[in-house]
Amino acid sequence: MQSRKTDPILQVHNLNVWYGKDQILKNLTFDVLPKQVTAFIGPSNSGKTTLVRCFNRLNDLALNFKLTGQILYKGDKLYTPKLKASKISRQIGMIFQKPIPFHKSIYENVAYSARLRGVKQSTQLDTTVEESLRKAQLWQEVYKDLQASPDILSNGQQQRLCIARALAGAPEILIFDEPCEQLDAAETPKLEAIVQSLKNRYTLIFVTNKRRQAARVSDVAGFLYDGELVEFQQTEQIFTNPKDKRTENYVTGRLG
């Protein structure tokens, strides 16, 4: 299913994270391989969101944030003073729990991230916007009026617009942070289908607190509990034959 030969795109070594005096993540070590879906599951407050926010350096915005250990992106250190956070987040996109369209037209929303990476020609922008909207499976629903405000879209459509916007920035990794939390039941399978279709071109990291969703979408899964990475291995293994008692309790619904 996955080639063992490929180098990991993200390497995490002894990662510890504090907010003030609270230790959120405790000594995490794992590798994320490219072009597959890596899911992080666990009860709320287990540190899933904090973990993925370390990858695109969004935690830098938080007060009293402290990190020890090392994260390597394609072999280079992610946390060095020389490297600007904006450069990293251009390559590592993120979809949030709540869809956050900007107060611009649908077209401008998607074009925004393309412009950020330096696309200026209008024909090139047009193709990028169309491609991204097609990849996010929203094109058919919005192509008639791209100048419309995203306010008229449903919650699920807005979330797909955010996916298109992230894709227009041409990232290597795409992080989904509980993207279905605020969507209705009909939208969730659409989003999961998008995740499956993006898998062969991007590295996807998927945070969810829905066990079954993780089992459906991911190739590799990590179980976080109270800031510890209890188990990290093939999704099939984690759901059918967990090594740790806590993982077993969680996947069977006795914990969390």
């Binding site: 695109n56 969004l58 915005l61 600007k84 956070a85 904006s86 450069k87 990293i88 987040s89 251009r90 390559q91 996109g93 993120m94 949030f96 709540k98 956050i100 900007f102 107060h103 925004y112 991230s113 950020l116 990476r117 955010c162 916007r165 992230a166 920035g169």
Partner: peptide
């Protein structure tokens, strides 16, 4: 705060976030 975070996550730097999002809002 979510608007700022979304812009930062797309790779906007502090200046772009202020000019494109914080000021208009």
């Amino acid at each position: 705060i979510s608007v700022r975070e979304a812009a930062f996550a797309l790779g906007a730097n502090r200046w772009r976030v202020v000019v494109d999002h914080v000021f208009p809002n």
